[in-house]
Design a protein around this nucleic acid. Structure first.
Lengths: 204, 204
DNA sequence: GCCACCCGACCGACCGCGCGGTATGCCTAT
DNA sequence: ATAGGCATACCGCGCGGTCGGTCGGGTGGC
């Protein structure tokens, strides 16, 4: 009934709807100027609505930020589940998951920038929820590396936890320097990153 | 006679001095709560002075933040110069520089956290100055990797730029998860990180 | 040796502004 | 008639920054 329909003045165009437009505007502005330096007024102006509309759909500015976190967490969790359930040699699966993480990060650069810059502005309980979800992601990835260590295809003299943390750090940092449209595409970067990870884990 | 002497003009170094206390308090609070969520009043309260004192030594809150950046940049530049001027096999020098970067980061965790979280709050020209300094650091490190590639001790099928960027990202992220006093010491973490970097760069 | 003077260090009360958030009501579709 | 979707006007607060004033010790003239 109301899923595909949108409000104002006929359904002639596929207009994204007010909540989605607010979320998109907030994502762009938060990534560009930072959460604290972006006023609610600027967000609603960019979305073409007023504060009344925003506070109709979101309880607070913090709520808007949390919606961005939820969107990225949901996406990551879904992708991770796919790779965890896949079959094949463990080294290939780790490589695919590592490259895909880079690919996904490049495709959602704004989210990635916001994620690691504005975590401390979330309320304590929401921050804990985000950390919990991230921890699940981390432990699943680490588990794949440990599986490779047990199988003997990865070196075991470096803790899987350290290797996973190092790689995640590098990926999280992508949002700080990567510019889409440059000479390095997302998949190409993912291939390089995954290659360096796998080579680093190769036994002597 | 001069043991009781304190103050900025004296040679005695007993008391840290008001500017230093302000910088230390700001560093701790900015790292803990974030720059925007820390008021000037909180900083001066933690330093045991008043706003008048702070604005006597620092032109603005932004100026206080920039002082933190300058301190870290100076430290990093000095250390890198030492490793660049050192002698010995290039692989050993890269390993030493990589491990030292981790060590230094762990020893200045608050600075590291602030560095990559609050860059966007600096004024445009100061942000450019910081980026320029960081770029010099990056290019020096990249140059060492390229030297190893030319010497044949590092693989050349991955750009040195990508390898350096990946490593720096991992190091920058340390401030988000590392807790001093845990079971993993700074030097131990540095050894693991450098080991993974060197192994990733090892030729087939 | 003493006083008049001065200057930097620092205090604390104050200001204007822009922020996040709210109350209320109109408009349209059902 | 009713209810949700959204606009408009408004509020109180806490922020970064300012400014006149105080205090103490160094300095030069006599």
């Amino acid at each position: 009934m109301n899923t595909g329909d949108d409000g104002p003045a006929g359904a002639g165009e596929r207009s994204p709807g007010v909540p989605e437009r607010l979320l998109a505007a907030a994502t762009r502005l938060f990534a560009e100027r930072g959460y604290e330096r972006t006023s609610v007024q600027e967000v609603v102006d960019a979305a073409g609505v007023t504060k009344g509309a925003m506070y109709h759909y979101y309880a607070s500015k913090d709520d808007l930020l949390y919606a961005i976190y939820q969107r990225l967490l949901t996406l990551q969790a879904r992708r991770l589940a796919d790779f965890a359930a896949a079959e094949g040699p463990i080294a290939d699966r780790v490589r695919a998951a590592a490259a895909d993480l880079v690919h996904t990060t490049v495709d959602n650069l704004d989210d990635a920038v916001i994620f690691f810059r504005s975590m401390h502005t979330l309320s304590a309980d929401r921050q804990a929820a985000v950390r919990k979800e991230r921890r699940r992601y981390h432990e699943c990835f680490r588990g794949m590396i440990e599986e490779g260590q047990r199988a003997g295809v990865f070196r075991a003299d470096v803790p899987a936890d350290v290797a996973a943390t190092q790689y995640f750090g590098a990926v999280h940092h992508i949002g700080r320097w990567y510019h889409p449209g440059g000479e390095l595409s997302g998949p190409a970067l993912g291939a390089y990153f995954a290659d360096l990870l796998l080579a680093g884990l190769r036994p002597d």
